[in-house]
Design a binder for these strands. Structure first.
Lengths: 192, 192
DNA sequence: GTATGAAAAGCTAACGGTTAGTGTTACGTT
DNA sequence: AACGTAACACTAACCGTTAGCTTTTCATAC
């Protein structure tokens, strides 16, 4: 159980980051579809196979930091007792994430994503992953006593609240409205 | 304004059906990933380009009849007045669709879908299409007076109720529980 | 009938993402 | 110093998909 001090890991992380940065730059400069994997690899000075050993797909280059999202959501409900109110915390979390997406620097990226069917589709499957993770955390924590179906439904609604709010005219108000709906839905799943 | 006499259309429909049937048979026999487009085209005795003129993608071969779903859902709420209760009708519709999916003959197909990431992903984007259509019908009909965000959220929940129920241990009970949640969520979106 | 226009189907060849196979280098460990 | 392995590289292909162009098949007007 040696503690990983790691020059290896540093180099690996650097390679990964260089690939991601190069890719995003090229995508923003020339458009996602206009840039091929072979170009990205060449510009980052790595082999195509190396690129694919760091990222599972071309789309994954764009959503480099999606694991954070998943952990933050799941972390917000982990280890809660069944009676505790967890939805306000989730709401705060979604609020923060929506505002993070509204950062001026992030706007061109989102425009690129919305313009590409492949990226939108990838984003959807990401959301499915996130909601399943949240559903699991829910079922193991504050959702004990509720049905698995109810946990999954609530988890999906929370994750999609983020997506819907991002596209709404007033994102903050949308988050609030959506969480009012979620609270109401959660309330009626209480066992008799 | 000539009435469509249609031997042409009959032949076209026949070709389309032959492709779909052949594809599904091969997929079930050998597995979705193990069968290539070129194989399907050869077995159906058509050119690859012909296949793609009938179906937009390989995945679309499996979800041949998804347009029905969309029309049935949207039709269940079209032209309703804002005060009318439309959710019971939607519930019945989802109920029927879930039971249709539970047909013994459909089981291997769903197993295949669940086993393939590509098919699951495609199913997701189909659902997004369906929920956007339902949201539009909702906003134009019984959802007048509610926010666009609320309509979209409810539409998504309805469409996903189908998906969640299909996977639940007791699909019928799941539909009922999910619609109880949806009713509650819809209730709190009423304007003040 | 035959000519004509158009839809449907076909063929070839390619493009772009992705992967298998096979080394080669650089690092951590012993 | 020697060894095992993780990271990387190169080639060559596979697969879904599309573009470009030709041929067949049908509907209709002459």
């Amino acid at each position: 159980m040696t503690v990983p001090t790691g020059r290896r890991e540093r180099k690996k992380a650097a390679t990964r980051q260089k690939i991601a940065d190069t890719a995003l730059r090229l995508f923003l400069e020339q458009g996602y579809d206009a840039v091929g994997i072979r170009e990205v690899a060449a510009a980052a000075d790595v082999a195509v196979t190396t690129l694919f050993s760091h990222f599972a797909s071309k789309e994954a280059l764009v959503f480099e930091r999606d694991a954070d999202f998943e952990h933050r959501l799941a972390g917000a409900v982990a280890g809660r007792a069944p009676a505790e109110p967890f939805l306000p915390d989730l709401r705060r979390e979604v609020h923060a994430l929506v505002q993070h997406c509204a950062t001026p620097g992030a706007a061109p990226v989102w425009r690129m994503i919305d313009a590409s069917p492949a990226l939108r589709s990838y984003e959807e499957s990401m959301r499915l992953r996130h909601s399943e993770a949240l559903a699991a955390a829910l079922a193991a924590g504050p959702g004990r006593g509720r049905s698995a179906t109810a946990c999954r439904a609530i988890a999906r609604s929370v994750v999609e609240a983020h997506a819907l709010a991002r596209q709404a005219a007033d994102p903050d108000a949308a988050v609030n409205e959506l969480f009012r709906m979620i609270e109401a839905a959660w309330a009626v799943t209480a066992p008799a």
